[in-house]
Design a protein around this nucleic acid. Structure first.
Length: 274
DNA sequence: CGCTTTTGACCTGCGC
DNA sequence: GCGCAGGTCAAAAGCG
């Protein structure tokens, strides 16, 4: 089953499944038809799925380029996982992220926020958070690279998470460069609210499971096969899938956090993107 | 003190 | 080579 191996390879960096058979994620049995949807990689299917992405991403040139290999693709783009979640799903990421940038994206009325892993300075894991302009309740998370350390059980610090961001930064930066001048008050956006996607502002003890939308893209920047879509799942199935998704990450926790154990834990992350 | 977010400037890749 | 757009840096300031 080459296709399944390929799928496994694509999401393995973020999830280490233990499945009894090809049609079963741990505890989440997927309908056979849906599984075929995942495994289907022929050209026509990709074209359809790319069209879906283009619509979902509001025509953002960046995302189009990321999802359509035939179009513009930046050289340093690495393997990445694109996930659509609701606002609740934003708070479900168990990793600690620190925001390091925000940019207005051409073609989208919403800015894109850039996060890096704050648990380890050497960690190359990145996350981009972008709000879908076709459905403001949907957020597009793009995970790039991988964590090179165990998942933190505690956030490093809660300092600064409740700051009033508009005392120090009175001006509104979110004006699209494309002339649309679509201004959205950051204050009203989860990008900048105290419940920002940054995991640092989350309650450690109450990690909600992500409310994943029905369409999820896995995309390997190094192959030219385009995105691999997961479509046609119902919410429960996807919830199960992502329960296991993050459970797989949880399995990697519990290692001592000293240097030697981190080296040891790196063995759990052999799939380094280069 | 150490962490965070904000935000303008800068860097880099790509198309023309 | 130039301009555009995306991605990153780093200084400033707030919070626990």
């Amino acid at each position: 089953m080459a296709d399944w191996d390929e799928l496994n390879h694509l999401y393995k960096p973020f999830y280490n499944p233990v499945y009894d058979n090809e049609n079963e994620f741990r505890g989440a049995t997927l309908p056979e038809n849906d599984l075929k949807t995942i495994q289907h990689h022929d050209f026509d299917h990709q074209e359809v799925q790319q069209d879906k992405n283009i619509k979902n991403f509001c025509g953002s040139s960046s995302n189009i380029s990321q999802l359509a290999p035939k179009l513009k693709k930046r050289k340093n783009q690495q393997k990445r996982v694109v996930v659509q979640v609701t606002a609740d799903g934003l708070t479900s990421d168990p990793w600690a992220w620190r925001k390091y940038g925000q940019k207005p994206i051409k073609g989208s009325i919403y800015p894109r926020s850039y996060y890096r892993c704050s648990s380890s300075k050497a960690c190359m894991a990145r996350r981009q958070v972008e709000q879908s302009c076709t459905d403001s309740s949907i957020y597009i998370l793009t995970y790039t690279a991988d964590h090179n350390h165990p998942q933190p059980t505690r956030r490093n610090s809660l300092a600064g998470i409740n700051r009033n961001r508009f005392k120090a930064t009175p001006k509104s930066p979110t004006i699209s460069d494309d002339g649309s001048k679509a201004v959205r008050k950051l204050k009203d956006s989860p990008f900048n609210s105290p419940t920002t996607p940054s995991a640092s502002s989350m309650d450690d003890e109450v990690l909600q499971q992500p409310n994943i939308k029905q369409e999820t893209t896995f995309y390997n920047k190094y192959d030219d096969q385009g995105p691999t879509m997961m479509s046609g799942f119902n919410d429960d199935e996807l919830m199960h899938f992502y329960d296991d998704f993050f459970e797989g990450l949880d399995d990697l926790v519990g290692y001592k956090t000293d240097t030697s154990s981190q080296i040891s834990s790196n063995k759990q992350f052999p799939h380094v993107f280069s």
